[in-house]
Amino acid sequence: MERRDFLQKTVASSALLSLGGMSLSSFSTLETKKITILHTNDVHSHIDPFPADHPRNPNMGGAARRASIIDQIRKEEKSVILLDAGDIFQGTPYFNYYGGELEFKLMSMMQYDLATMGNHDFDNGIDGFHAQLGHANFDFVSANYDFKNTILDGIVKPYKIINRDGIKIGVFGLGVELDGLVDKKLYKETIYNNPIEVAKSITRTLKEDKKCDLVICLSHIGFKYRNEPERVCDITLAQQTKDIDLIIGGHTHTFLDKPVLEKNLEGKEVLINQVGCFGINLGRIDFYLSDDTKYDNTTRNIILG
């Protein structure tokens, strides 16, 4: 009697489960989706374009121009994500006079989604940064700065998951070592942890636990240090981890003509991009995704430049 009862329940629940499953997806058609990532780094308070007689960057940059380019792309694309890889602050009197207020307000108007912290974002102290956060309608992520004993505890989180058009995009932040670069009285009790160790654990969370379709690292650790080959940078980060699809870098003010490819621990391609500094360039990476099983074990087609 007991056994029969069990069987009947199993049948009932299986039927229920599979019905649920069928209605959700089993007979839906295959779908292709496009996620457009736009990004800046090391803008350093460069709100106005460079003057026409500037020896290096004549007539380049400018927040109002960047805004119109972003606006145009938003009109053309369904799913746009706008990111910044740090050092928003310091470089023009706009910062010295207003402490970052205008930078944050303009980024909010452009609808930035997320940023990470660069070393210069501590220039008015961790309190000076915190005081301006009210002007930012976007979040900051940093996974290797431990803010537990600071005013940013619970405010700057390790990662954020952005959902667009049914695609889960996990974005985490990494910051450069502060000791020797930033005065301790500015960063206070912020603890710097090894970016690669932290990245290994965060990517596992994002990929395996949170089932993200796309994993992006917003990095301010620097692209590469020619004279210090041992120093952790975006290249070594890509090589020594897995499951990162894109590293958006900063700190070294590296002007890459196009994104760079590096092989990760599993031999898969990781994209690294950095667009120089001072708001002179905007990076654009389009990801095409499909739920067609034919792509389960194929390598992705990467078009650069």
């Binding site: 989706k33 374009p49 196009k258 002179i280 360039n281 995704l289 739920d291 389960d296 194929t298 992705r300």
Partner: peptide, 26 residues
């Protein structure tokens, strides 16, 4: 029914947009 639900990246397209005077200001 679960099998078809995974999203794979099959193509990536990356480029740099130079911000200069050819773009109008917002």
């Amino acid at each position: 029914s679960c099998k078809t639900h995974k999203n794979n990246i099959y193509e990536v397209d990356g480029k740099r947009i130079n911000i200069n005077e050819q773009y109008i200001s917002d």
